[in-house]
Design a protein around this nucleic acid. Structure first.
Lengths: 140, 140
DNA sequence: ATATGTGCAAACTGTTTGCAGCCGC
DNA sequence: GCGGCTGCAAACAGTTTGCACATAT
């Protein structure tokens, strides 16, 4: 994503009017678009605190909550019971490497929603995998 | 599962010899086999404390950890950041109803591991869905 | 003017840790 | 007797809550 793509995305996604546009919200969302590394709340906080020293962690929590409810952000949980953030909400799976603790996106092609869910009203469908990523596999 | 099935399962699964058989471990595992309700740690603790008042929650945590590592028990996380326990480790998905907070098992037929994971060494593959279950769907 | 957002400090909760005593091999 | 298991109390960490102040419409 280029800088201009990011700005376009921010404008587009905030334009629903459902949520008020504040500097903190923009900076959290922008950070997630620019850093597709599935960072923790703490990581985002520490990164943004540099530019805005008065930023509070509470605000990050509030903001993540707001953005999640507005559908701009997804919360991903690794097996280590860690919250990771994702600014990309298209449908994809998450692979957690137990060695490097990196979270990788993967395509869900071939993994359809099972028929056994037909009686349920589904709102979210989450696929997660755990193991070793390509480079950690070789090192071990 | 009949009472005799449960006893058979306990004997079979503990017979690997990897883990020592203790009354606490048996009772936690038995509880999970008898109550396929994906209970929380707290629920298990409170239920078993009745028969064994000196039981400690630390022991439940230790036991769940041991049984999980031995492959007898699975830990499931709902979206509400809640740990739920499952004594059945065959491959199946979990549906979390946001209304009644019940966790339902579902078959994974039709949901294959995506090809995009071919470069990874996969150890776990988890499918979760969230929404309203059949009866809550009608009530709302 | 009113509702909403921000930021600090304190509270909370589920889990982990340290440690002493116990039990089984 | 030794290594692993149990259980208590204390510590811990991530998150939430209460509240005062600031900001936008």
């Amino acid at each position: 994503m280029t800088e201009s793509d990011i700005v376009q995305t921010i404008i587009r996604r905030f334009s629903s009017g459902d949520i008020r546009l504040t500097p903190q919200r923009i900076s959290v969302y922008r950070y997630l678009l620019e850093n597709r590394t599935h960072p923790t709340v703490d990581r985002v906080f520490n990164a943004l605190k540099i530019e805005n020293p008065s930023l509070s962690k509470t605000t990050i929590y509030n903001t993540v909550d707001t953005l999640t409810k507005a559908g701009l952000v997804r919360v991903v949980r690794t097996n280590e019971d860690e919250v990771r953030l994702d600014g990309y909400t298209d449908n994809h799976g998450h692979f957690y490497c137990t060695n490097c603790e990196e979270v990788y996106d993967f395509s869900l092609e071939g993994c359809a929603v099972p028929d056994s869910l037909h009686g349920f009203q589904m709102e979210e469908f989450d696929v997660r995998a755990t193991g070793l990523c390509g480079s950690c596999k070789q090192k071990n």
